[in-house]
Nucleic acid binder design. Structure first.
Lengths: 282, 282
DNA sequence: TTGCTCCTCACGTCACGTGAGGTGGC
DNA sequence: TTGCTCCTCACGTCACGTGAGGTGGC
């Protein structure tokens, strides 16, 4: 009998690479690779044909490799562990390093998942708002609103810094779209009295930021569609409406940035949506 | 003036690849790759030298790419998003798919981190135990212990199934090393009356598993070092001690598997540690 | 002329997957 | 002879990193 051939049903069993692949769940290519890397050398090799034959004992080693690979160890690490460690105590360094590596990835993916969730949710909320309106002036009631704002003198384009300041200070208490309050009775290009901020769930005054409840009530509202530079037209429209109806406006007026540049993409300014709200007394 | 060269301080600014790399934080190689893939084509290329020149507007696109890459999007996805999406609303499908992919990775890494923690902690506990003993018989007190066990008639090697049965049923309530209780007064190779199980934090009887408190008290203890097949020698030693002292033994006796084959590696049976405890009345 | 920056190949990474082309045993 | 299994290259993946070897502007 050729000693390089697998033994028959009477001898001790020996598996071809195909059989061993089915037993271990490792692919043919993986088995050949592990052989080449010296991780899992078949217990017998036919010199003439280079056929690989695996003994049951190789199965034990294969399971160890599989378990380590399932825990995301590199083949290099696996090779070292198989060579140097009889024990899990021997492998403690490897295990702890791996734990640290995995924890780092975990933290990263948690961050990413958080960002994605935030963006997705924001987007879904916006889609609601868009359907509600026909871009005409309307009268409505708004409820009270806890607001965190940073007030300054300047122009509209300075709001960005105000937003990031408030966002940084309030963090996870933010619960709505960015808003601005305009305290001037007339339109001002520069040196306007503006408060930039966000609705919040809770929070306290801090570093120039004021947190308090904005009173709700009756208001006239108009959603401006298009780039911010063209918002003047919408102000004309809403002001004309207020005058025609003889309402008295209560300052500050509000701008709510329903849709602007996104967290990733800038978007098309033609599609930006800004709601103008003027609180009124009838 | 050559229109292919960057404009001087008076014209609109234009950056060499090195400058643009410093501005964006993207490596030279990355910038060249993004160019090749069409993700970020420099706004001007000198035909004679193939030097790349980037305009400030390219910086905006670079930031978008960076943000997407930070969220682990593939370059292929990034290319598609840049091409098809002006808006985050347009990219919603991509974002949700990515969220799903990230969540899957998160779940996997959480599992791995859990396994690693478990193995590491187990190993550290074992190291404590090892130092405590000189492998001699000693008398000590043990406290009460909530135990979940599966009782059967058979031989020692059948315990494995008992352990996995109990482990499966009790899951995260397990809180200690595998144990066996031996109810026979004398040693039996086969048909022994054995209960295999684990200490638990809490739990109820279920599917052949009994959960109850084992009474603590005085006992004699011996840690057996070596393969289980040789445990007979340690039994002789501890029995001789008990007889010499005239203690009465209260059945069942206990075996605690301080160190055996690990979750990954089989370990060296010569280093296995098994504690034998016999409860006594003095 | 010397540094510095830029260019284009080309190979390496990591753990395999996927053919191509050929052989051996039933 | 026909299928099936096995073999050895060799190339592809993914997002770059790292030279090698050469050019262009100050």
């Amino acid at each position: 009998m050729d000693p390089d051939l697998p033994s028959g049903p009477s001898g001790n069993p020996c598996f071809s690479i195909g059989e061993f692949s089915r037993i271990t769940g490792l692919s043919l290519k993986a088995l050949r690779l592990y052989h080449e890397k010296g991780l899992l050398v078949p217990s017998r090799i036919n010199r003439a044909t280079n056929y690989r034959f695996y003994a049951p004992a190789d199965g034990e080693r294969a399971r160890v490799i599989t378990r380590l690979r399932d825990m995301d160890f590199s083949l290099e690490d696996i090779g070292e562990i198989l060579e140097n460690c009889r024990d899990e105590a021997d492998a403690l360094d490897y295990l702890e390093n791996q734990k640290a590596a995995i924890s780092a990835k975990l933290a990263r993916y948690r961050d990413i998942a958080g960002s994605l969730d935030q963006i997705i949710q924001k987007e879904k909320e916006s889609q609601m708002n868009i359907q509600e309106t026909g871009f005409e002036v309307e009268e409505k009631e708004v409820s009270n609103l806890l607001f965190a704002g940073y007030r300054f003198q300047g122009k509209y384009s300075d709001c960005g810094q105000g937003f990031s300041r408030v966002a940084k200070a309030m963090g996870r208490y933010l619960c709505g779209k960015a808003m601005c309050l305009y305290y001037d009775p007339e339109y001002k290009e520069d040196g306007a009295d503006i408060e930039a901020g966000f609705p919040v769930r809770k929070g306290r005054d801090a570093e120039g930021i004021s947190v308090r409840e904005l009173k709700g009530g009756a208001c006239v509202s108009l959603i401006h569609k298009g780039p911010y530079e063209e918002i003047g037209r919408s102000y004309e429209k809403i002001t004309a409406y207020v005058k025609a109806k003889g309402f008295r406006v209560i300052l500050p007026s509000r701008e709510i940035y329903l849709k602007g540049p996104g967290m990733i993409l800038r978007g098309n300014p033609k599609n930006y949506l800004t709601e103008i709200q003027m609180m009124i007394e009838r």
